[in-house]
Design a protein around this nucleic acid. Structure first.
Lengths: 248, 248
DNA sequence: CGGTGTTTTGATGCTCGTCAAGTTCGGTGG
DNA sequence: CCACCGAACTTGACGAGCATCAAAACACCG
């Protein structure tokens, strides 16, 4: 089911790849050491459910590697993704017993976990953690609100373009590449997962990707590898201000 | 344009009606006094824009009385409401220079404001403020994510029922009334504002309200006064679990 | 009691969902 | 290395649901 102490985990927090972006980002060496004492790693395979909606939440933690999704499901099966969890993103909420959403591993993932109670206690005594968590939560709130515009007002084609723009931007940041000229990346999501994120059906997602391909906005190799020919064109298709409305 | 020191403002924080729910909720008497020294009140009339998207944000603050909305607008005029601000809700973000959304007063409102810089400094030295703001932000994030399900997956009729349920629940909490039997309240929003919140047109909102009326789920007197005959029926129309999925 | 802004109702068309085949991709075993 | 298999994806036909445009009815205010 789940493997503890996977190979990819860093031996010390100081060496950790998400050290300067995760909830521990503001901690000094001393605080980091105390966190190190209560942390533990867990791995999940692609497709595994990390947390079930309604379950008791025994732990919180950060994504170290891989991608997970946050989804809500209605009784009749309609599903909406409400968050995409990338390395350094935080899972769980201090002070919350019951998980409100499903957390599902989209790829193999490694998480850096803390039992909830000790973490909550440490948050009380370590303002740096609460401060960083507040920053991260405010960023997530902005992302959620931006997505509300996508879900409430954008057409299918604009929604696809919006998603591609977000992934392209994130990927460029990660690879320290520029957003000028061609941008290539692999989609981390299936068409169905994209549909769940975009509030569409997978057929509509497929059709609109084909349309963007036909109109020369993107090229696609295989099912997952996408080339964006020009970022400004893509942003126009997304209905966004060309000069990039996102400021986080 | 805007009136300082309005009549409705409490003279002392201790007497304030949002004392135990706002960002100052966790503060002790001492901390409250320091806040009192830097706070000031501002009033806005119904329809006034409190903050323009893109503007420099000189202050943050709490809604004391009245209702405001948080909206995003695309270049072609499509608008999406991304938040409904009620008494005790916080406006603005520490560390953020530029406002990402329009804040518009829906009714006459009174705000308790702090200049941003002094507030940020105080946040550093007063963990109680940061802790409370974190709680409030996490709650808002949950609300935003719940709304993503509404915008992404629910049909027009379900969206209307969802909105009515939220307003009914809030109103009952405010009046300390129960959610059994009939529930009456005034809509704080025009049909157009409801449409902006729900990702619909005002015509569709009107049609679906008429349909809920015809089917005996609600009655409407005048344009604004609504009676919900049975909360469980309304929740079923909203597509929610009858046993109330919200746990905040 | 008239005027203005809000809401309702109607007619029509577009977008996207649904159902149903096909096709391609990517991995597995012969 | 190639054939095969299942999963993922594409494409097509059709209909439901909602937007759009237009006009009438209603509420609210002096």
């Amino acid at each position: 089911m789940l493997l503890d102490m996977p190979g990819q985990a860093p031996s010390h927090c100081g060496d950790c790849q998400i050290r300067h972006r995760a909830v521990c980002a503001k901690c000094d060496t001393d605080e980091l050491q105390r966190l190190e004492e209560i942390k533990y790693y867990r791995s999940f395979e692609a497709g595994q459910t990390v947390i079930w909606s309604g379950d008791h939440m025994g732990f919180v933690g950060s994504i170290v590697t891989g991608i997970a999704t946050l989804t809500q499901t209605m009784e009749d099966g309609r599903t909406q993704m409400v968050g995409l969890l990338l390395p350094s993103d935080f899972v769980g909420r201090p002070g919350r017993e019951i998980a409100p959403y499903d957390v599902v591993a989209t790829s193999d993932i490694v998480m850096c976990c803390f039992r909830r109670k000790p973490f909550e206690e440490m948050m009380e005594s370590t303002p740096h953690i609460a401060q960083r968590l507040l920053q991260m939560t405010l960023d997530e709130l902005d992302a959620a609100r931006e997505w509300m515009l996508v879900l409430g007002r954008k057409k299918a084609r604009e929604r696809i373009a919006s998603l591609l723009a977000i992934i392209a931007r994130r990927d460029a940041t990660l690879k320290l590449a520029s957003l000028q000229g061609k941008i290539e990346f692999d989609l981390p999501l299936t068409r169905e997962a994209m549909a769940d994120y975009l509030g569409l059906t997978l057929e509509t997602v497929s059709r609109q990707i084909s349309a963007l391909k036909k109109d020369g906005v993107i090229s696609v190799e295989g099912n997952r590898h996408v080339t964006v020919h020009d970022m400004d064109t893509l942003l126009q298709e997304a209905g966004d201000d060309t000069d990039g409305g996102i400021l986080s």
